[in-house]
Amino acid sequence: MFSKIDAMDVEGFLSNLAENVTFQFGNAPALVGRAAVREGVVAFFSSIAALRHEMTGKWEADDITIVRFMTYYTRHDRIEVEVPCAVILHHAEDTLIDDYRIYIDLAPVFAPQLRDKPAAATH
């Protein structure tokens, strides 16, 4: 599934989700249903040039999966920003994901970047 996300393949990503999925990305309001998730993911993908995930941990217990990542976002100005995140997934009986929570701080991705830092003052 994360290879589909990294390819920015919205439909491939959505194929892993239950029709009535609850999806929450960071501190954004939860989205309910595939159609709402599609709209949210398309909007988010338009705000970045690319992304990729490197898994740094995974835990499973019954119908819950927790995954830890280092996520690399490429901004439209081509600057790559590294952000840690964790994802908690609940799998329905049909194995599709019916609850998807992403814990991340996206502020660094959208923060203004200083191209040239001012020289230190000398006295």
Rank of each mutant, 00 (worst) to 15 (best):
1 M>Y: 09
4 K>N: 11
5 I>E: 07
5 I>N: 07
7 A>G: 07
7 A>H: 09
8 M>D: 06
9 D>F: 07
10 V>Y: 03
11 E>M: 05
18 A>L: 01
18 A>D: 04
20 N>T: 13
20 N>L: 02
24 Q>F: 00
24 Q>T: 04
25 F>D: 12
25 F>K: 03
26 G>N: 03
26 G>L: 00
28 A>I: 00
29 P>Q: 04
29 P>I: 00
29 P>N: 05
31 L>K: 15
34 R>N: 14
34 R>M: 06
34 R>D: 06
34 R>E: 03
34 R>S: 06
35 A>C: 08
35 A>E: 15
39 E>M: 08
41 V>P: 11
41 V>R: 05
41 V>F: 07
41 V>I: 14
41 V>N: 08
42 V>H: 05
42 V>Q: 13
43 A>W: 04
44 F>G: 06
44 F>L: 07
45 F>P: 04
46 S>F: 03
46 S>C: 06
47 S>M: 14
47 S>H: 07
47 S>K: 13
48 I>K: 06
48 I>G: 10
48 I>E: 06
49 A>T: 06
49 A>M: 08
49 A>P: 07
50 A>V: 02
51 L>F: 04
52 R>Q: 10
52 R>G: 09
52 R>N: 11
53 H>D: 04
53 H>R: 09
55 M>D: 07
56 T>L: 05
56 T>M: 05
57 G>K: 06
57 G>H: 08
58 K>G: 08
58 K>V: 12
60 E>W: 04
61 A>T: 13
61 A>K: 13
61 A>N: 13
63 D>H: 04
65 T>C: 08
67 V>N: 12
68 R>W: 09
68 R>H: 12
68 R>M: 11
69 F>K: 02
69 F>V: 07
70 M>I: 12
71 T>E: 12
72 Y>L: 11
74 T>K: 15
75 R>Y: 04
76 H>M: 09
76 H>Q: 13
76 H>Y: 06
77 D>F: 01
77 D>K: 04
78 R>Y: 12
81 V>E: 08
82 E>M: 14
82 E>L: 12
83 V>W: 00
83 V>L: 04
84 P>E: 02
85 C>I: 10
86 A>K: 11
86 A>G: 15
87 V>L: 11
87 V>S: 10
87 V>I: 15
89 L>S: 02
90 H>Q: 04
90 H>I: 01
90 H>D: 01
90 H>P: 03
91 H>D: 07
91 H>E: 03
91 H>G: 02
92 A>T: 00
92 A>C: 02
92 A>P: 00
92 A>Q: 02
94 D>F: 00
94 D>H: 01
96 L>G: 02
96 L>F: 02
98 D>V: 02
98 D>L: 00
99 D>F: 04
100 Y>I: 00
103 Y>S: 12
104 I>N: 07
104 I>G: 02
105 D>N: 15
106 L>V: 12
106 L>D: 05
107 A>G: 10
107 A>P: 05
107 A>V: 13
107 A>R: 12
108 P>H: 05
109 V>L: 04
109 V>A: 06
110 F>R: 06
111 A>F: 03
111 A>K: 10
112 P>K: 14
112 P>L: 11
112 P>G: 10
113 Q>D: 09
113 Q>H: 14
114 L>K: 12
114 L>A: 12
116 D>F: 13
120 A>I: 11
121 A>G: 11
121 A>R: 14
122 T>V: 14
122 T>G: 05
122 T>P: 00
123 H>F: 11
